[in-house]
Design a protein around this nucleic acid. Structure first.
Lengths: 107, 107
DNA sequence: TTATCTTACCTAGTTTACCTATGTATGTCA
DNA sequence: TGACATACATAGGTAAACTAGGTAAGATAA
């Protein structure tokens, strides 16, 4: 399940900049509650992805004074997403083919 | 890429019983050489999956005297495959939706 | 006004997964 | 008889995934 987390993060950030806590909320809402990450899972990933230069972060402050760390996808990140997308689709096709064979053999 | 390996193994074995070395060959042929696992990757996985009762193994001998360890998917394994399949499709749909949003926002 | 909830971040450390490297043994073919 | 293919295996390092816990400030309700 979490194997795809990097791709999910990149995909979300390719739509618009976002911050950790909101990413968690977005994903929960977006999947109608089916998918929920823990904070301790997400933050280390974001840090790693920034270290790998897939993301860049910047701090902002809301009117009420809350600090948020926004993440922005870099060019490297965009390319990485494209690569992962291609791989995902390849695996997906391989699985689909296998399932079709299985299904056919059960007839 | 390897995150889906458990599902691939279960999918292959749900078609018919197979042994380690042949699974490697099948996958290579099936993906036209794009996907190649090392033996050191596969065997420990098979052992783990047998320990988890997803698979059961039995030894056979070819006419020429070569010993092969065949794996058979158990009922637990079949159920696990169904579960993973559902999850995979869920993640796949989530990703597709995200990609559609991204694509739309780039217009 | 103080307790609780929500928002928002973080790290330490364990467990598990992944993968490389390496080893053994037998059969096949040039 | 040396090289290649078949067929299994494990040890051990690295990286990923996840749990558990911590801080702090704003919002809300008693």
């Amino acid at each position: 399940m979490a194997a795809s987390s990097k791709m999910i993060i990149l995909s979300i950030l390719s739509i618009e900049d976002n911050y950790g806590y909101q990413i968690l909320e977005s994903l929960k809402t977006f999947t109608e509650g089916f998918w929920e990450w823990k904070e301790g899972m997400l933050y280390p990933m974001l840090h790693k992805m920034e270290k790998d230069q897939l993301l860049k972060s910047y701090w902002t402050e809301t009117l009420s004074g809350k600090k948020r760390k926004y993440y922005h996808i870099t060019n490297i990140g965009t390319k990485a997403l494209e690569t992962e997308k291609t791989e995902w689709e390849f695996v997906n096709q391989t699985l689909s083919k296998l399932w079709r064979i299985h299904h056919a053999s059960q007839q």
